[in-house]
Design a protein around this nucleic acid. Sequence first.
DNA 1: CCCACAAATGTTACGTTATAACATGCCAAA
DNA 2: TTTGGCATGTTATAACGTAACATTTGTGGG
Lengths: 133, 133
Amino acid sequence: MQLTTNQQRVLATLQQSSRPLSAYKILERLKSEGFKAPTQIYRALGCLAERGLVHRLESLNAYVRCAPPSTEQGVRAFAICDSCGHVDEFIVPSLNRYLGTWMKQNVFSLGSSTIELHGKCATCSKLDRTSDS
Amino acid sequence: MQLTTNQQRVLATLQQSSRPLSAYKILERLKSEGFKAPTQIYRALGCLAERGLVHRLESLNAYVRCAPPSTEQGVRAFAICDSCGHVDEFIVPSLNRYLGTWMKQNVFSLGSSTIELHGKCATCSKLDRTSDS
DNA sequence: CCCACAAATGTTACGTTATAACATGCCAAA
DNA sequence: TTTGGCATGTTATAACGTAACATTTGTGGG
C-alpha cells in the first residue's frame, strides 16, 4: 500500500533531518503545512514504524528514518553520537549466537529488541582531539 | 556513603515489586509515607542510579532494582517479559567482540549502552502452551 | 549554646511526551 | 446515491520529567 500524504510528510521531515526528531519537533516543522495536533504526528509515525520505515529511539524519545527491512539476518542496533546527534544503524548479525546461551538457559522467547549505543562518532572524536590543549 | 531515608524508601519499593515501576507508580505507593511530588522520587532515583542500584528501562519508562556493579566484564542487558512484567538482568560478556567489528570500522567510542529484550519468560510461555486449544 | 553553612527535603509550577475519545471529510463499492 | 470504511481533524487529558525556589535538618566553629 502507498503512504498517505501525512505519512509522506512526516517521513520526509525525518529524512531531511541529520538527527532524530521528537514527535513535537516534527509537529513544529509541519505546522506550516497545516498540522495542528500531536495525534496527527503519532498516527503517521505509528504506520511508518509498522512498515519499518522509521524507528523510535527509546533512549531519546525520538524518531529516525531507518533502513527498510533487509534480508540480512539479525537485529537492528543504533549507534547514537551524543555530540552531534548522528545516528548510525547497523545489524547485529546474530544476537542468538551471543545471547543464545543465556536465552536457552532461561527459555526466553524473544519478541523485539532495543539496542542503542551512546558515545561519540568518528568526526566528533577527532574534533575533541584537535581541540585538546 | 549511606542512603538517605527517601532513597531507602524508593529502593525498598522497587525491591518489593515483582515488576518495573514508573516514577509515578512509586510516588503513589509512597504517598502514604508523606511523599507528595514527583521531584522527590526522581531525585532518589537519580542517586540510586548513580550508585548502580536501580536501572531505568528506556523502553518502559520504568525503573527496576538491579544487581550491584559486578566485577564481571561486560555490558548490562535486560530481558523483559511482556506478559508478566518480570525482568531478568544479565551481562553481555563482551559487546566489543560482537559489535567490535562495526565499532572499529566506524570508530565509535562507546559511552553507555541500552540493551532491552522484549518477549516471554519461561513461565508465561508454558502457560500459553497449556491453555492452547 | 548559637550561628553559619551545607545537604537533604519539600513545594509549586511548568515543560515534554503520548493517547483517548469523538467529529468530520473523502472515496469507493453496492 | 447511499453506505461503510478509513484517513484526518480536533479537543482534552494522561503520563513522564525537570526547574526554581523555600524550608528543614544536622554538623562543625565561634
